[in-house]
Simulated assay, not measured.
Amino acid sequence: MRKRTALAVLCFVVVCGMSPWFATAAVLSDMAQEGGFGPGRQALLTAGVQAGFVVGALISAGLGLSDRFDPRGVMACAALMNALVTAGLFAVPLGSDAAIALRVAAGAGFAGIYPPAMKIAVGWSVRDRGFLVGLLVGALTLGSAMPYLFAWMGGTAWRPVVAAASIASLLAAAGSFMLRLGPYHARASTFSARSIVLMWTDRRIRSATGGYLGHMWELYAMWGWIGAAAAVGFARRLPEDQAKSLAAMTAFLAIAIGAMLCAPAGRLADRIGKAPVSAGAMLGSGSMALATALSFGGPVWLSMLVILIWGAMVIPDSAQFSAMIADAAPPEVAGSLMTMQTALGFGLTIFTVQATPVLAGWLGWPVALALMAIGPALGIAALSPMLRRDSQSPDPESTP
């Protein structure tokens, strides 16, 4: 299988496999109305996915699953599990402990899809890894956006959205058997968890991880709640039903536009450096977080435009943090280090996703949105050693 075909299949699997991520976030208002549960339970349904991902990623990194085993089998098992636990929402009371447990299980399953997919992607090349991982993150982003599209098409009714996400995950499980590994794929015959210490002892890996944490402070809080925030803001100018429908479409477009920019950002990163591209994206996304707060409740066209620009800026840097790890780490443990990086980032999102609606309830959505800009500011600061390095001596592996 040629590189281009192999990557197309990988992107298809990731789009389908990540579709259940926001399967409840996209239809929370409908689920909450039918199930009669409040904001706290709503936040747990979303944050539970983040928590599950962290648990799954830590287990995966500790056992070296992405490096010791065939990542295609890991992805197939994870996608099948997610199809089942997503469909399980039909069998439990909405907003119940059982429903939250199913979302936690889904989060753990995503840890068996995204990190192994990164391992497969970087195995296809050394010189254009920024582009390859950017392509993959674009697929992840598009998959994450799909429930919002399902919600818009289904009138925000929760059952069609959950069913569509479950079916998509089944397609991902089937597609995993069609994946192929690249010529640079490295598999570890044995694995030592002590290699994870490189996350803190290697300056380049530490800097990339710090930048990633700043990026993640903002990303999933924005993705998870921008639909709800937009609905409240739009409702100041539009009838409630129309505001909800437009908010669902706005959320889908905001996430999907970001997906389209991940691969071009990767190409640029391979030419001028991964750290400068990441810092530039964080500067843009932090600025747009503040702009969204300032435009909240204003003219709908203006609020929607700012949100779309924010969505375009918030994700293109994500791939480059993983690519930095792949460049700096020994090939046989790169998968586990990328998994640990994502575990730390998603651990942070448990707090930000849970705190965002609470802060919105206390202080209003404009303040909650503005506080998301803290992450990009800290991320740029963490990347400063890498920025100085790139300005002094560009990474020869980053030159196409």
Rank of each mutant, 00 (worst) to 15 (best):
Q354L: 15
I255L: 15
F177H: 11
S318Q: 08
A173K: 02
A334I: 00
T24R: 02
D67L: 06
L308V: 07
L45F: 04
M222V: 13
P183Q: 12
I380Y: 02
W223I: 00
L344I: 11
L7N: 05
E240L: 14
V314E: 06
T342M: 14
L142T: 07
F110C: 12
G107A: 11
A51N: 03
A265V: 13
Q354P: 02
R206L: 15
W362D: 06
A275N: 09
A106P: 05
S19F: 07
L94R: 11
M260W: 12
I59D: 08
W152F: 14
A293R: 07
G211E: 15
D390G: 00
D395I: 05
A186M: 10
S295A: 15
A157V: 05
S384I: 05
L344S: 08
E332Y: 03
V161L: 10
L383M: 14
L305K: 03
A208S: 15
Y220Q: 08
L246C: 03
A248V: 14
P115G: 09
V367N: 05
F252N: 09
A289W: 06
G107D: 13
I59Q: 06
A382E: 10
L135Y: 00
M118G: 02
A281Y: 00
P264Y: 14
A265I: 08
L44V: 03
V367D: 10
I272A: 01
A251Q: 11
P396N: 06
V358S: 10
G210R: 12
S195W: 00
D67H: 05
L142G: 13
A8F: 09
G143F: 08
R72Q: 05
P396Y: 13
L45K: 07
G56W: 09
P316E: 10
S29H: 14
R237K: 13
Y148T: 03
M249A: 13
G138A: 08
G227A: 15
A334F: 00
P147M: 08
A105E: 13
G266H: 04
M178P: 01
A319D: 01
L308Q: 04
C77Q: 00
L337P: 01
D327V: 02
P331D: 05
S96L: 08
G56M: 07
D67I: 02
L337F: 02
G335D: 06
G88R: 02
V55G: 12
A248Q: 14
L28N: 04
L253Y: 01
Y212E: 11
F22R: 09
L10Q: 06
F37V: 10
I100W: 00
K274H: 14
V49P: 02
G361C: 04
L198N: 11
P160C: 01
V14K: 08
M118A: 14
I257S: 10
A26Y: 04
P299N: 07
D241Y: 00
A106V: 06
S207T: 09
D241R: 11
D327A: 01
G88L: 11
P357H: 11
E218R: 13
L179H: 09
D327I: 00
A98N: 10
V161C: 08
K119P: 02
T190D: 15
Q50I: 03
T209Y: 09
E397V: 03
L89I: 13
R203C: 07
A281W: 01
C16R: 08
L10R: 03
L84M: 13
